[in-house]
C-alpha cells in the first residue's frame, strides 16, 4: 500500500512534483505515466526516502516515510531508473549484497537468490562479473536485486528502458507475477503501450501534476470515443484551423506549419471532407495517421503535445 497525499517536492530552481496524490493498493500495478521531466523519478525518490518531501505526506504500508523511514524502507523494494549494480561483482554477489542491505540472512537469502536468478533467467551466468552482461541482462538483474527480499511494496522506475523486446516481455511478466502474489507495484514509464497493457490503474503526470487518473476504462471514457487524426505536410495554421472548424464536430488540438492534430468522432467517414477543405485553403497533405482512443490521444488531448518528443 502506498498513500501519497498532496506531495510536493521543490528544488532550488523548480518544483518537480506539485501536489501529487494517489493510492496504490496491494496486488495491483499502479502506473505513473508521463514524459521525461514530468516528475516520476522525483516522486519515487520521495517514496523511497532518498528525497525529503517539501510538503505533503507519503506512507508505505502505513509508515510515514519521513517520521518512520526505516520501517517504511523495510517494506520497500526499489528498482531504480539507472542500473544500480556493482559491475565488478557477479550477479550472485550483487544479490547477496542487496539482500543483506535489506536485512536478509543466510539460509533464506540463499534460497531467494537461487529463486530470483531462476525467474530472471540468469542462473547460468550467476558467477560472471556483471560488466560482461548485456543491457537486457543487467536490467533483469537490476529488477532481481529489488525483489530478492520479497518486498510488499515494489517501486519500479522505467525498468524496461533500453531493453530488447524479449527481455522486456520477460520483465513485464515478472512484474505481473509479483502483483499476482499480492505485492503493491508502482510502475513509472513514458511508454503508452506498456502502461496500457500492464497497469491496472494509472495516473498521467505532466509538469509535476496529475492531469488524469483512474483505470483504463475511465481514462478512455474521458476521450468520449473520439479518434485522433494526425496530418503532416505543409499548412497555413490559421487558414487550416478555420477551414476545419467550418466542417464542424472537429476539435483542433494542434496546428503548426508541418503538423495538424485533430480530435473527432468517426474520423474515417470524415476524411474526404477534411482533405477537400484543406486542399481548398492551399494545404499540402503528405501523411495521415488515424489513432483510435488511447492513452496517447488522451495525453495529447490533455496537454496539447505528444508524449514522446
Amino acid at each position: 500500500m502506498i498513500e501519497v497525499e498532496r506531495l510536493r517536492k521543490s528544488f532550488v530552481d523548480l518544483t518537480a512534483v506539485d501536489g501529487v496524490s494517489f493510492t496504490a493498493r496491494p496486488g495491483e500495478i499502479f502506473g505513473l505515466l508521463g514524459p521525461n521531466g514530468a516528475g516520476k523519478t522525483t516522486t519515487i525518490g520521495c517514496i523511497s526516502g532518498l528525497l525529503t518531501p517539501t510538503a505533503g505526506r507519503v506512507r508505505v504500508m502505513g509508515h510515514d516515510v519521513v517520521r518512520d523511514g526505516r520501517a517504511a524502507r523495510q517494506a520497500l523494494g526499489v528498482v531504480p531508473q539507472e542500473i544500480a549494480l556493482y559491475e565488478d561483482l557477479s550477479a550472485l554477489e550483487n544479490l547477496s549484497y542487496w539482500g543483506g542491505a535489506q536485512g536478509m540472512r543466510n539460509p533464506l537469502l540463499r534460497d531467494r537468490i537461487a529463486k530470483v536468478l531462476e525467474i530472471t533467467g540468469l542462473q547460468d551466468r550467476a558467477r560472471e562479473p556483471v560488466k560482461r552482461f548485456s543491457g537486457g541482462m543487467k536490467r533483469r538483474l537490476n529488477l532481481a536485486c529489488g525483489i530478492v527480499h520479497q518486498p510488499r511494496v515494489l517501486l519500479l522506475d522505467e525498468p524496461t528502458v533500453g531493453v530488447d523486446p524479449q527481455s522486456r516481455m520477460r520483465l513485464l511478466e515478472l512484474i505481473r507475477a509479483e502483483a499476482r502474489a499480492g505485492v503493491c507495484v508502482l510502475y513509472t514509464t513514458h511508454y503508452m503501450e506498456e502502461a496500457e497493457t500492464l497497469c491496472d490503474r494509472l495516473a498521467i503526470v505532466d509538469h509535476g501534476k496529475v492531469i488524469a487518473a483512474g483505470d483504463l476504462a475511465q481514462l478512455r471514457s474521458m476521450l468520449a470515443e473520439r479518434d485522433l487524426l494526425r496530418l503532416s505536410g505543409v499548412f497555413h495554421p490559421a487558414a487550416a484551423r478555420a477551414a476545419l472548424e467550418r466542417i464542424g464536430a472537429i476539435e483542433v488540438l494542434q496546428a503548426d506549419e508541418g503538423l495538424l492534430i485533430l480530435s473527432l468522432a468517426g474520423a474515417s467517414g470524415k476524411l474526404p471532407s477534411i482533405f477537400a477543405a484543406l486542399a481548398a485553403c492551399g494545404a499540402d497533405v503528405r501523411g495521415t495517421t488515424l489513432t483510435q482512443p488511447s492513452l496517447e490521444s488522451l495525453f495529447i488531448k490533455l496537454t496539447g503535445k505528444e508524449l514522446r518528443e
Binding site: S48, L76, G100, A101, Q102
Partner: peptide, 13 residues
C-alpha cells in the same frame, strides 16, 4: 557512477 549509493539509500541499511 554505479548509482549504488542511491539504491542503498532506499534500503533500511
Amino acid at each position: 557512477t554505479f548509482h549504488t549509493l542511491r539504491r542503498l539509500a532506499a534500503t533500511p541499511a
